[in-house]
């Protein structure tokens, strides 16, 4: 599968608008995967209909004590880099949400008194709507480990979803979850808006994507046709602008209702078509 990450430096620039509309548009003619990896706050499902196909619980491995082997030496607490283990006297306490599943405690316990057991991390939900397969990865509230959930989501996609093109709605920001998502994709669309905030955040996103050595192109959202610092930046840095979605209250209103926008707004449709033709040319190049 050829996977395209839709990402942005900050939230609220229109990542979800682009990924949901683009994937539905492309799905008119071919099998498409839309995956929502914004695991803390997955919102794409609001724009998807269709049949619930399957749900899968996602687990991570956390340590548990084999009581009759533990002598309370405290080595496990000492080696845990994530403060996920505490000793009260000779009693060992594990904090599973803090655990990174590195296995250091298990490997280094002098008495082989630790084994791993699965703990629930979140859930994957697959919904099928004709050509469109939608996958949502959702982290349970209170869980902090987005990265293993994202990793396992990509494994699930590999094993279960035959579509040739995947549109991946990424988490916002530039920290580990974004890195994990973009690392697993072949190309990146960066969505931004023409304001100093948008530009500042776009620069951070560009740095992140370059660090991961991925090819990318820019999509401007809420474009008001006025002087545009994003265009200046892109021409100076020689970055490709794929499309510019106009700033219109009617578009914002359609989004607020959870509707697909390209079906009702012809300007928006034009921009989605530009993005879709880029996707198709990337696919041709790949074949």
């Amino acid at each position: 599968m050829y996977k395209i990450a839709v990402a942005s430096g900050k939230g609220g620039t229109g990542k979800t608008t682009v990924s949901t509309n683009l994937s539905h548009y492309l799905a008119q003619e071919q099998a498409i995967l839309l995956a929502d990896m914004d695991v803390e706050e997955p919102d794409s499902h609001i724009f998807v209909q269709g049949q619930l196909w399957q749900e899968k619980k996602v687990y991570k491995e956390v340590p548990t004590l084999i009581k009759d082997k533990c002598v309370g030496c405290g080595r496990c607490k000492e080696v845990c880099a994530f403060n996920a283990i505490t000793m009260l006297g000779k009693r060992v306490l594990f904090f599973n949400e803090l655990c990174h599943s590195c296995y250091a405690c298990l490997e280094l316990c002098p008495h082989q008194a630790i084994e791993m057991k699965p703990q629930m991390l979140g859930q994957l939900t697959q919904i099928n709507d004709k050509n469109l397969t939608f996958l949502e990865a959702r982290l349970d509230i209170g869980q902090e480990q987005a990265v293993p959930l994202i990793k396992q989501s990509f494994d699930f996609i590999k094993e279960n979803i035959p579509a040739e093109i995947g549109i991946i709605d990424s988490p916002p920001g530039s920290s580990c979850p974004v890195v994990e998502t973009v690392k697993n994709c072949d190309f990146v669309f960066l969505v931004t808006e023409p304001s100093p905030f948008g530009l500042n955040d776009l620069k951070i996103a560009v740095d992140t994507v370059k660090l991961l050595k991925k090819d990318f192109a820019i999509i401007i959202n809420k474009d008001d046709g006025e002087e545009n610092i994003i265009r200046d930046y892109c021409s100076k840095e020689d970055l490709e602008i794929l499309a510019a979605i106009p700033e219109k209250q009617s578009i914002a209103e359609l989004y607020s209702r959870g509707s697909l926008i390209y079906e009702e707004d012809v300007d928006f449709l034009g921009e989605i078509q530009k993005i879709a033709s880029k996707v198709n040319s990337l696919m041709r190049r790949k074949r």
């Binding site: 080696v79 994530f82 990174h100 590195c102 296995y103 490997e107 280094l108 890195v179 660090l211 991961l212």
Partner: peptide, 28 residues
């Protein structure tokens, strides 16, 4: 567990973007 060690011709290197800093490798 994080696939953070890269094999080069005659030595190993750490990929800092994958390393989570658990320290297991340094212990073993």
């Amino acid at each position: 567990r994080f696939d953070a060690i890269i094999s080069l011709s005659n030595y190993k290197k750490v990929d800092p973007l994958s390393c989570e800093g658990c320290g297991l490798c340094s212990h073993i």
